[in-house]
Design a protein around this nucleic acid. Sequence first.
DNA 1: CCCAATTTGGACTTGACGGTCCAGTTGCGT
DNA 2: ACGCAACTGGACCGTCAAGTCCAAATTGGG
Lengths: 203, 203
Amino acid sequence: MGNTHVPATAKGRATRERILQAAAELLAEKGAAGMSLDDVRARTGASRSQLYHYFDDRDDLVRAVIDVTTDAVLGRQGELLDHLDSWAGIDRWFDFMVQHQIEQQARGGCPIGSLAGQLAENDSAARAAIGAGLDRWEAHLRDGLIRMKTRGKLRSDADPAALATATMASIQGGLLLTQVRRDPHQLRIALNAARNNLRLGAT
Amino acid sequence: MGNTHVPATAKGRATRERILQAAAELLAEKGAAGMSLDDVRARTGASRSQLYHYFDDRDDLVRAVIDVTTDAVLGRQGELLDHLDSWAGIDRWFDFMVQHQIEQQARGGCPIGSLAGQLAENDSAARAAIGAGLDRWEAHLRDGLIRMKTRGKLRSDADPAALATATMASIQGGLLLTQVRRDPHQLRIALNAARNNLRLGAT
DNA sequence: CCCAATTTGGACTTGACGGTCCAGTTGCGT
DNA sequence: ACGCAACTGGACCGTCAAGTCCAAATTGGG
């Protein structure tokens, strides 16, 4: 996977980055099926051979973009993700996501989750990449909850892994409803419920 | 929307039904972008002009299929949806969905929810149709919860609409995780959390 | 049974897209 | 500054998909 030419020169690296960047934008804007290589060409000013120089084919590019997108999502949430080991930290995280949807006017949903519905069923490599992205995300919360449990802030019979999974489901579902209904409040409702469920594990 | 020739003869109606049926299958199998009119032709033995006789264009067909799919999903859940006014009824509903995913080997996700990620962002008519479908679904739960509240099984300060929305989010998110991870247990975890949240409103 | 409306068959047009190929240019180590 | 590898430009090809068009067949009411 992604076993394509790793650029040897600085110029090559820059070109590869430009392509990935544009492809990521287009994937978010027009969906997986809607992004054409000509679109990418137009946006980057790159030529056809550049695309095929740095990526095996279209699918390879899409897979690479999934990884880049995951990095972007996790990066955007920044250090919030490192403080999911307190109720206040978790609340800040939830608030951030809702605020982000308000700013986006409820468009776009989750960049990773949206791709799931588009690619999971028919492209197993992409499904694996999306799964890995979701895992990385969920791991931050799970690890935070484990730390809370160690500190005695979670009951000893609480299951951090399951709590993290249930929370991810509320996030993804809440974002989906937000996207379809163009209403950020849908995410708020889902996250309030997720919070209630987490709190059931509190000491 | 869908203002296409309503068939005047029995034969015409049958043809239109065949087309819708095949298109619904293909949409579920290959995704919204993956379904081509030629696929539909091949599966129904219909000719090109039949497609354009009964539907304005591809988008019109897709929109019609969304409605048909909603009917199918609600129909499959049958009378379970009429008994969401007791904890036992809700549990039966949850169990049914998990069981269904086990039988499907965690493939396909939610037929409606999957379409959301594919169409919501770039086809506002489709988004409206999907939203209507989700609303119809959610309404069953909301109405059940309202009946429970009337009967005093839900606290007087409980918000049936919000509880129903949060539950829908857990369902959709749980199905998404199930699909990506090919593991029906993901839905189980999400629904357990949803159940916990609902129970917080119990008297 | 006849005719007008409905339905059907399928050739054709147009355009987009993924992918290949090769020749030309640039960058970099020696 | 030389030469090889890395990089780039863009013409070209095959395929496939959406949509148009018109003529033929079928249907059903009067």
